[in-house]
Design a protein around this nucleic acid. Structure first.
Length: 858
RNA sequence: GGGCGGUUAGCUCAGUGGUAGAGCACCGGCCUUACACGCCGGCUGUCACAGGUUCGAAUCCUGUACCGCCCACCA
């Protein structure tokens, strides 16, 4: 136990208590707790290569408030912290930070050290060297992140941090993958997939975003080939040519068909006929498909392999051939016209034209193509400028292409009905967020592509046999033992082979790809709860209680976690999902770096104090986007200061404390008991916002109204003074605990003045506990008296204020409204003492009336 | 185009059938032996709009407008 300082202050509380909490192990998870007593939280691992911003401070505070509440309720809180260091953002940061680029063909250089300043152009390093640099840099980032979280007061168990690239994460990711592979949920396929030409990797549907781009419609003429005489209904029904509109004329060499709606009378007679592509002279059929929109363009479209995902649908459903012209880096690949698959009525001309495109990226090829179409007269009119939405990788800079490649997928389409069921089982806070999830599940267009052609990630634990010709036989997989995981097939050698056989005839080859970062993140409950590695921990923590996260990653993290848990354990990974909103600028836009208005979180904490920032954050309820508001932080700071001062006052007299006998004290504690019940109910519904608001309102009322009434009585002696002393102490203890989840530093500080142990492991107050001071029953009559007392004091203060009289001018007489008469004996003393009216003459009447002492002549 | 939220005081937001609220801001007072980083008081509204249900609607229903978000939209 400490003592009450002379001049309590907030400065330095963060350092003092974060240190103490750490040394005392206040937030250490109790590994011996049974499952029923555990409350486990699936913390979002922030991306370490980005920087933390105000939005993180906001949403992580929400989780911490809940964690602290649950801990005080007696739960063993399992609250680990993760770092998402795996994936593209880290790769990009490492490239810029060190001035390197990864070249997987290079051998590992154990003596490599990065240049002091990033060179231009970047120096090429091997994949193992690159991964080392990623690891080095993320460790630095993680330290900075942890420092911020500690300063904010997150009550995580810092002995349980995890990283998504850690050995355990790689092991879990690979193990879950192998299990999925065994069950047939994971499969490999050579198929057209969305492809980022800069990162040179496949991307998944969940990582797409639309951006508005300028574009142009080009009207292009395709000559119709003569049909069989028996098919035509007359010469007038067979035009000489068909006009299509396209925004991507450069893809004409990849055209494999034209398509119109089956009911479109304009094109009905032409289905089955062929056209010749302009410039390249390839014969392609005219086909019918319901996805063709008669309203768009000329109502007939060209199908290319592949211009967009509709092309992929058409290609698949109409069983069309592939004519791929784009390569992985987004440029036109060299090819030979007249060869297999590239027939032309004039191969020489086609080749000459194509050769001017080969090697060009799409945008340049388009310009060249327009020139050629103009020359040949196949372009009708001028291109018509439009703006349209184009799919981008969310981290990418150029539009996605669709490229055929070998990728790993996890079956999701078949699971959609079951996933919708899981979504209904999950308790969402706020409830309407479920709709986001259901929209996403219903809108899925394909299985989840989980492979990425990147370097810093979890490798697929797969090797393939290499045949006699040195070609990789993807159908002949070699899988590692589960016990050997994690492995890296690019450096580890499969059982029964020698390292020298890598990539040799009759040898083996490692799968070159790494997993989508969500393929690891989706396993966060498995990673933290010790799936298949710590059965004891697993049995105490899984399924988890809470997934806190922001709404923008429902389609990625939440969805994929539900999917993986569903596939692996056939149930939900957690009971509750608490979805936080965003922090908005005052102009209602999402706060972002590009707007130049991001405040650094550490700066915020230093300026306002952690409790103050947490106070602001806790005012934003689940799912509610909240404006950044330094004013609210000031209010939070005032609350913290008030807590110091009020506590100092209450603790200024701790004895003698007797039974709570005075009616105002009984009324106050009855009210407090109701508040405790209400706050507890709110917290159980994740409505921490109400819990804060109500506790705060009560606290200010307690300070400004109740203390002002009882302080003079308390300063005296006897049973009535002892009642005041006892009730104020009870109230302080309860209020501090009700506010502790929100303002942990100041409440801990005050607690330390008079109590042993941390307030954060003290028990959450109960209604019963408060009522025990009142003989276990609420005293409603006392609440009535309390209300009367406040009303009369308000009337007196109002008059004093309107007459602009200092407190020092005593009240001479009061006419008390008769409504208060029955309580007056009990409350009069405190009301008069609190208003410098101790000597006033009291009468009773219909209305309130008051007279102050005449001013003293100087 | 589909879905989800929102619209209440100058600002930020509570309030989900019973007399319109809080904090901030603003204005006017007050050193009252916990706190001037404080206290007291005052001002402030067609509860977006239009219909409907109801004895009674900010609240329930229908529609509209606007704001935001998620998804779809590359011919």
């Amino acid at each position: 136990m400490g003592s009450v300082p002379e001049k309590p202050a907030l400065e330095g509380l963060e350092e003092k208590w974060t240190t103490r909490w750490e040394t005392d192990g206040v937030f250490r998870f109790d590994r011996s707790a049974a499952r029923e007593r555990v409350y486990s939280i699936d913390t979002p691992p922030p991306t370490v290569s980005g920087s933390l911003h105000v939005g993180h401070v906001f949403s992580y505070t929400h989780t911490d408030v809940i964690a602290r509440y649950q801990r005080m309720r007696g739960r063993a809180v399992f609250y680990p912290m993760g770092w998402d260091d795996n994936g593209l953002p880290t790769e990009r940061r490492v490239q810029n930070y060190y001035g390197v680029r990864c070249d997987p063909s290079l051998p590992y250089d154990p003596s490599f050290t990065p240049p002091a300043t990033p060179p231009k152009p970047p120096v090429a390093v091997s994949r193992p060297n690159f991964v080392e640099l990623c690891t080095t840099l993320t460790v630095e980032d993680e330290k900075a992140f942890e420092a911020l979280w500690r300063r904010l007061g997150l009550s995580v168990d810092w002995g349980m941090t995890y990283a998504t690239i850690s050995r355990q994460s790689r092991r879990v990711s690979q193990l879950a993958f192998l299990r999925s592979l065994r069950r047939g949920e994971a499969y490999q396929l050579e198929a057209p997939t969305l492809w980022d030409i800069d990162f040179r990797t496949a991307v998944a549907q969940a990582e797409l975003e639309d951006r508005e781009m300028p574009g142009a419609y080009h009207r292009v003429r395709f000559r119709l080939k003569p049909g069989l005489a028996s098919e035509g209904t007359g010469p007038e029904s067979s035009p000489a040519s068909i006009e299509i509109e396209t925004t991507r004329p450069e893809l004409i060499p990849a055209c494999v068909a034209l398509v119109a709606h089956p009911d479109d009378e304009r094109y009905k007679p032409l289905f089955g006929r062929e056209v010749v592509t302009p410039l390249f002279g390839a014969s392609v059929p005219i086909r019918a498909h319901a996805l063709a929109d008669p309203e768009k363009g000329t109502g007939i479209a060209m199908i290319c392999t592949f211009g967009d995902i509709t092309d992929v649908t058409w290609w698949r459903e109409l069983s069309l051939p592939v004519r791929a012209i784009l390569q992985a880096n987004g440029t036109f690949k060299p090819l030979t016209w007249g060869g297999p698959g590239w027939s032309s009525v004039d191969p020489t001309a086609a080749q000459a034209r194509y050769d001017t495109l080969a090697g060009l990226p799409a945008a340049k090829a388009r310009a060249r193509m327009v020139e050629m179409l103009k020359e040949s007269g196949d372009l009708i009119g001028e291109p018509r400028s439009i703006t349209h939405h184009v799919k981008f990788f969310e981290k990418g800079d150029r539009p996605l292409e669709i490229i055929t490649s070998r990728q790993w997928f996890i079956r999701t389409m078949d699971e959609r009905p079951a996933l919708l069921e899981r979504g209904k089982e999950l308790q969402w806070f706020p409830a309407y967020m479920r709709a986001r999830y259901e929209n996403w599940v219903n809108g899925l267009t394909g299985d989840w592509c989980v492979s990425r052609q990147r370097f810093f990630g979890v490798p697929f634990p797969v090797w393939y046999r290499v045949d006699a010709n040195g070609a990789v036989d993807h159908s002949s997989r070699i899988l590692p033992d589960e016990a050997s995981l994690p492995i890296d097939p690019s450096t580890d050698v499969p059982p029964g082979f020698e390292g020298s056989q890598r990539d040799q005839p009759h040898g083996f080859a490692g799968d070159p790809d790494v997993m989508d970062t969500w393929a690891t993140s989706s396993l966060s409950p498995f990673i933290v709860c010790g799936w298949e590695s710590d059965p004891d921990l697993w049995s105490r923590t899984y399924p988890m209680d809470l997934r806190p996260q922001a709404h923008d990653i429902i389609r990625t993290w939440l969805f994929s976690t539900v999917l993986r848990a569903h596939l692996e354990t056939q149930h939900l990974p957690w009971k509750h999902a608490a979805i936080s909103g965003w922090v908005l600028d005052p102009d209602r836009k999402k706060m972002s770096k590009s707007k130049g208005n991001v405040v650094t979180p550490m700066g915020l904490l230093e300026e306002h104090g952690s409790d103050a920032v947490r106070y602001w954050a806790a005012k934003g309820g689940p799912g509610v986007d909240t404006a950044f508001d330094a004013g609210q932080m000031q209010v939070g700071r005032r609350l913290a200061i008030k807590l110091l001062n009020a506590s100092k006052f209450v603790l200024g007299k701790t004895e003698p404390a007797g039974p709570v006998a005075h009616v105002l004290d009984r009324g106050m504690l009855t009210r407090l008991a109701g508040l405790v019940a209400q706050s507890t109910r709110a917290f159980e519904e994740y409505d921490y916002t109400s819990a804060l608001r109500d506790a705060e309102t009560f606290f200010w009322w307690f300070c400004d109204d109740h203390i002002e009434h009882v302080k003079r009585r308390r300063a005296g002696e006897g049973a009535e003074a002892e009642s005041a002393t006892a009730s104020c102490l009870t109230a302080l203890s309860v209020m501090l605990r009700l506010l502790a989840p929100f303002v942990p530093f100041v409440t801990e500080e005050v607690w330390s003045w008079w109590r042993k142990g941390s307030i954060h492991t003290a028990s959450w107050p109960t209604e019963t506990e408060v009522l025990s001071a009142l003989g276990d029953r609420p005293d409603t009559a006392a609440v009535d008296a309390l209300t009367r007392a406040s009303e009369i004091s308000a009337l007196i203060r109002r008059e004093r204020s309107l007459k602009k009289l200092p407190f020092g001018v005593p009240v001479q007489s009061i006419q008390v409204p008769v409504a208060a008469r029955e309580h007056w004996t009990a409350i009069g003393g405190d009301v008069l003492a609190g208003n410098n009216a101790a000597a006033a003459r009291i009468t009773f009447g219909e209305d309130f009336a008051i007279e102050f002492a005449p001013p003293v002549k100087p």
